[in-house]
């Protein structure tokens, strides 16, 4: 129950949620709700692991994961943008499809053995910052550091650049964006792809860095859905997404650690004496997601802000929207 260890491991495990959440923020900001995160992450985790196993190159694994999850995301894009189908149902279908595909192509992979993982290292200099150094910059996976970079970049892109302005426009008021000569649907395809590829990276981060291996559908164990909850909590803001993701990562780690010692805070540890109480600890991330959703929704009502206005609606030129 060392807080440094919990936070250190929490950041690593939160990085998975971070990639998935920021990817979904891009997709939802463009007006497309993609509930298929879980399926895309599974495809990413499976294909990354399989590729790394076959070639011995984990980076190639990450690349293939982005490709596979990106490809899967385009199924959702075609169905919701071109064929204007319901985005909720299509996202669910994508989850089934991704889960099914990764189970079929990942058959036997769980017994595959050791694989080359993504490298871990410390950042010289930064590691000697008191408290934060050992947590953030000591012996973390390269994906964790990429996550640190992604957060400010994503925020800057969305809020301070011209393409980011276009992204927000097509999600808030596509008809106005269209009138300005922005190709709404082409951009939406693009941002669904971005979301898919980042979900693929999230999957690869699980299977090649954070908790290496392929454990069929348990590999993600609902993290794709937690990420979708985090998007709402984050109010579609990458910086808040980072806070939420790392907090959830730390929570997941704490649940593992809390069952270890015989005493916590000088008291008898009930989770040590009855390991089955651990099932209640297992519920915590999911219960917390619901709590986080309540907080996010109440705040949205209070501040009178909320999801991108056109989220979930197909854009059909000439039809009165909004």
């Amino acid at each position: 129950m060392d807080p440094i260890i919990i936070l250190h491991a929490g950041i690593a495990s939160g990085t998975v949620l971070l990639f998935a959440t920021i990817g979904e923020i891009f997709t939802e900001r463009s007006g497309i709700l993609n509930l298929g995160l879980e399926g895309m992450m599974l495809i990413g985790a499976m294909s990354a692991y399989k590729t790394a196993l076959a070639t011995g190159n984990p980076w190639l694994g990450v690349f293939v994961a982005m490709l596979a999850a990106g490809l899967l995301s385009q199924v959702h894009a075609i169905i919701t943008i071109q064929l204007q189908a319901d985005q909720v149902v299509s996202g669910l279908a994508l989850t089934f499809l991704g889960t099914g595909l990764s189970l079929v192509f990942g058959e036997g992979l769980s017994k595959a053995g050791a694989v080359a993982l993504l490298p871990s290292f410390s950042i010289p200099g930064l590691v000697s910052i008191p408290f934060l150094g050992p947590i953030m910059f000591e012996d973390q996976s390269v994906m964790v550091y990429l996550g640190y970079l992604l957060v400010p970049l994503a925020w800057y892109y969305i809020n301070r650049t011209r393409p980011g302005l276009h992204l927000r426009a097509i999600g808030e008021y596509p008809a106005a964006a269209d009138a300005l000569g922005i190709n709404v649907n082409r951009l939406r395809y693009f941002y669904v792809l971005v979301g898919g590829m980042l979900a693929g990276v999230a999957g690869a981060t699980i299977s090649l860095a954070v908790s290496p291996g392929w454990f069929s559908h348990l590999t993600t164990s609902g993290q794709g859905w937690i990420a979708i909850g985090l998007v709402i909590f984050a109010q579609w803001d990458p910086i808040r997404a980072a806070g939420g993701s790392y907090a959830f990562g730390a929570l997941r780690r704490m649940i593992l650690d809390i069952q270890g010692p015989m005493k916590i805070f000088g008291l008898r540890n009930p989770f040590y004496y009855n390991p089955y109480w651990g099932f209640f600890l297992q519920m915590l991330p999911y219960a917390f997601t619901i709590v986080v959703l309540v907080i996010g929704s109440r705040e949205a009502i209070r501040k009178r802000m909320g999801s991108p206005a056109a989220l979930g609606l197909p854009y059909i030129r000439g039809e009165r929207g909004l």
């Binding site: 189908a85 279908a93 189970l103 079929v104 058959e107 069929s216």
Partner: peptide, 19 residues
Amino acid sequence: QPSGIPMLIQGIILVCLIG
């Protein structure tokens, strides 16, 4: 075998259906 086949077929059916 593989065991994911029914899940996969269900997924494909749903995708085709909503499309």
